[in-house]
Measured scan of single mutants.
Amino acid sequence: LEELEQFARTFKQRRIKLGFTQGDVGLAMGKLYGNDFSQTTISRFEALNLSFKNMCKLKPLLEKWLNDAE
């Protein structure tokens, strides 16, 4: 759980530094990986307001997006 919290904080910082909005991330993930995510989902991930199971599902996709975006 602590690792997920740390990743969520780091993800938000890096996303902002790269100049992407939460909506940009959701749209890009849909185009790149075929998984559409709303701005609300990205927001809830960053705020740790998703279930642990959903956080675990999203983490690898967000890590991949972040690596591809950098």
Score class of each variant (00 low, 15 high):
residue 1 L to M: 08
residue 1 L to V: 09
residue 2 E to R: 09
residue 3 E to V: 08
residue 3 E to K: 04
residue 3 E to T: 05
residue 3 E to R: 05
residue 3 E to S: 10
residue 3 E to D: 07
residue 4 L to F: 09
residue 4 L to S: 03
residue 4 L to M: 11
residue 4 L to G: 01
residue 4 L to Y: 02
residue 4 L to N: 01
residue 5 E to V: 10
residue 5 E to A: 13
residue 5 E to G: 11
residue 5 E to M: 15
residue 6 Q to P: 05
residue 7 F to Y: 04
residue 7 F to E: 02
residue 7 F to R: 00
residue 7 F to M: 04
residue 8 A to E: 01
residue 8 A to T: 09
residue 8 A to S: 06
residue 8 A to D: 01
residue 8 A to M: 04
residue 8 A to L: 02
residue 8 A to I: 08
residue 8 A to N: 02
residue 8 A to F: 01
residue 8 A to K: 01
residue 9 R to N: 09
residue 9 R to I: 15
residue 9 R to C: 07
residue 9 R to T: 11
residue 9 R to A: 10
residue 10 T to W: 05
residue 10 T to G: 10
residue 10 T to P: 00
residue 10 T to I: 10
residue 11 F to C: 05
residue 11 F to E: 00
residue 11 F to N: 00
residue 11 F to K: 00
residue 11 F to L: 04
residue 11 F to R: 00
residue 12 K to S: 12
residue 12 K to N: 01
residue 12 K to W: 03
residue 12 K to Q: 15
residue 13 Q to C: 06
residue 13 Q to N: 08
residue 13 Q to L: 11
residue 13 Q to M: 12
residue 13 Q to I: 11
residue 13 Q to H: 07
residue 14 R to V: 06
residue 14 R to D: 03
residue 14 R to Q: 08
residue 14 R to W: 03
residue 14 R to E: 05
residue 15 R to P: 00
residue 15 R to N: 01
residue 15 R to G: 00
residue 15 R to C: 01
residue 15 R to Y: 03
residue 16 I to W: 04
residue 16 I to K: 12
residue 16 I to G: 07
residue 16 I to T: 14
residue 16 I to S: 08
residue 17 K to W: 06
residue 17 K to Y: 06
residue 18 L to N: 10
residue 18 L to F: 11
residue 18 L to M: 14
residue 18 L to H: 10
residue 18 L to W: 04
residue 18 L to S: 04
residue 19 G to T: 02
residue 19 G to L: 03
residue 19 G to V: 00
residue 20 F to S: 04
residue 20 F to Q: 08
residue 20 F to L: 13
residue 20 F to V: 06
residue 20 F to T: 03
residue 21 T to D: 05
residue 21 T to H: 03
residue 21 T to Y: 01
residue 21 T to I: 01
residue 22 Q to I: 06
residue 22 Q to R: 06
residue 22 Q to P: 08
residue 22 Q to A: 13
residue 23 G to H: 09
residue 23 G to N: 07
residue 24 D to K: 04
residue 24 D to I: 01
residue 24 D to C: 05
residue 24 D to Y: 07
residue 25 V to P: 00
residue 25 V to I: 07
residue 25 V to M: 03
residue 25 V to S: 02
residue 25 V to D: 01
residue 25 V to L: 06
residue 26 G to C: 06
residue 26 G to S: 10
residue 26 G to V: 12
residue 27 L to W: 07
residue 27 L to S: 08
residue 27 L to K: 15
residue 27 L to C: 09
residue 27 L to N: 12
residue 27 L to Y: 14
residue 28 A to Y: 07
residue 28 A to L: 08
residue 28 A to D: 14
residue 28 A to G: 07
residue 29 M to G: 01
residue 29 M to C: 08
residue 29 M to Y: 01
residue 29 M to I: 04
residue 29 M to P: 01
residue 29 M to L: 15
residue 29 M to N: 01
residue 30 G to V: 10
residue 30 G to L: 10
residue 31 K to D: 06
residue 31 K to G: 10
residue 31 K to W: 03
residue 31 K to P: 05
residue 31 K to F: 03
residue 32 L to H: 06
residue 32 L to Q: 15
residue 32 L to F: 07
residue 32 L to Y: 13
residue 32 L to D: 14
residue 32 L to M: 12
residue 33 Y to R: 05
residue 33 Y to T: 12
residue 34 G to P: 08
residue 34 G to A: 08
residue 34 G to N: 09
residue 35 N to D: 07
residue 35 N to E: 15
residue 35 N to I: 05
residue 35 N to P: 12
residue 35 N to H: 06
residue 36 D to A: 10
residue 36 D to G: 09
residue 36 D to L: 10
residue 36 D to C: 06
residue 36 D to P: 06
residue 36 D to V: 10
residue 36 D to M: 05
residue 37 F to T: 05
residue 37 F to K: 02
residue 37 F to A: 05
residue 37 F to C: 09
residue 37 F to H: 07
residue 38 S to P: 09
residue 38 S to R: 11
residue 38 S to T: 13
residue 38 S to A: 12
residue 38 S to Y: 03
residue 38 S to E: 12
residue 39 Q to P: 14
residue 39 Q to W: 07
residue 39 Q to S: 13
residue 39 Q to I: 12
residue 40 T to R: 12
residue 40 T to P: 08
residue 40 T to F: 11
residue 40 T to Q: 14
residue 40 T to L: 08
residue 40 T to D: 14
residue 40 T to E: 13
residue 40 T to M: 09
residue 40 T to A: 10
residue 41 T to H: 14
residue 41 T to V: 14
residue 41 T to N: 09
residue 41 T to G: 04
residue 41 T to F: 06
residue 42 I to S: 01
residue 42 I to M: 06
residue 42 I to G: 00
residue 42 I to N: 03
residue 43 S to P: 13
residue 43 S to C: 05
residue 43 S to L: 08
residue 44 R to V: 02
residue 44 R to P: 00
residue 44 R to N: 02
residue 44 R to I: 00
residue 45 F to Q: 00
residue 45 F to T: 00
residue 45 F to P: 00
residue 45 F to W: 04
residue 46 E to Q: 00
residue 46 E to M: 00
residue 46 E to F: 00
residue 46 E to I: 00
residue 47 A to K: 10
residue 47 A to L: 11
residue 48 L to A: 15
residue 48 L to I: 11
residue 48 L to H: 14
residue 48 L to R: 12
residue 48 L to T: 06
residue 48 L to S: 14
residue 48 L to W: 05
residue 49 N to D: 15
residue 49 N to M: 08
residue 49 N to I: 11
residue 49 N to K: 13
residue 49 N to V: 07
residue 49 N to P: 01
residue 50 L to E: 14
residue 50 L to R: 01
residue 50 L to Q: 06
residue 50 L to H: 07
residue 50 L to T: 10
residue 50 L to G: 06
residue 51 S to D: 15
residue 51 S to I: 01
residue 51 S to C: 05
residue 51 S to Q: 07
residue 51 S to W: 00
residue 51 S to A: 06
residue 51 S to K: 12
residue 51 S to F: 01
residue 52 F to S: 14
residue 52 F to Q: 07
residue 52 F to N: 08
residue 52 F to A: 11
residue 53 K to G: 13
residue 53 K to Y: 07
residue 53 K to M: 09
residue 53 K to P: 09
residue 53 K to T: 15
residue 53 K to I: 08
residue 54 N to K: 12
residue 54 N to Y: 15
residue 54 N to L: 07
residue 54 N to V: 14
residue 54 N to E: 15
residue 54 N to W: 08
residue 55 M to Y: 06
residue 55 M to A: 12
residue 55 M to P: 01
residue 55 M to D: 02
residue 55 M to Q: 05
residue 55 M to F: 06
residue 55 M to C: 02
residue 56 C to P: 01
residue 56 C to H: 08
residue 56 C to S: 11
residue 57 K to H: 06
residue 57 K to Y: 07
residue 57 K to G: 13
residue 57 K to R: 09
residue 58 L to R: 03
residue 58 L to G: 01
residue 58 L to V: 13
residue 58 L to I: 15
residue 58 L to T: 10
residue 58 L to Q: 04
residue 59 K to F: 05
residue 59 K to S: 06
residue 59 K to D: 00
residue 59 K to C: 05
residue 59 K to V: 11
residue 59 K to G: 08
residue 60 P to F: 10
residue 60 P to W: 03
residue 60 P to H: 04
residue 61 L to D: 13
residue 61 L to H: 09
residue 61 L to Y: 08
residue 61 L to T: 14
residue 61 L to A: 10
residue 62 L to Y: 08
residue 62 L to T: 02
residue 62 L to E: 00
residue 64 K to A: 15
residue 64 K to M: 07
residue 64 K to D: 13
residue 64 K to S: 08
residue 64 K to N: 04
residue 64 K to H: 15
residue 65 W to F: 10
residue 65 W to D: 02
residue 65 W to C: 03
residue 65 W to M: 03
residue 66 L to D: 02
residue 66 L to C: 14
residue 68 D to F: 15
residue 68 D to A: 06
residue 68 D to V: 10
residue 68 D to H: 04
residue 68 D to C: 10
residue 69 A to M: 14
residue 69 A to P: 05
residue 69 A to V: 08
residue 69 A to G: 06
residue 69 A to K: 07
residue 69 A to Q: 15
residue 70 E to M: 08
residue 70 E to Q: 08
residue 70 E to D: 15
residue 70 E to V: 11
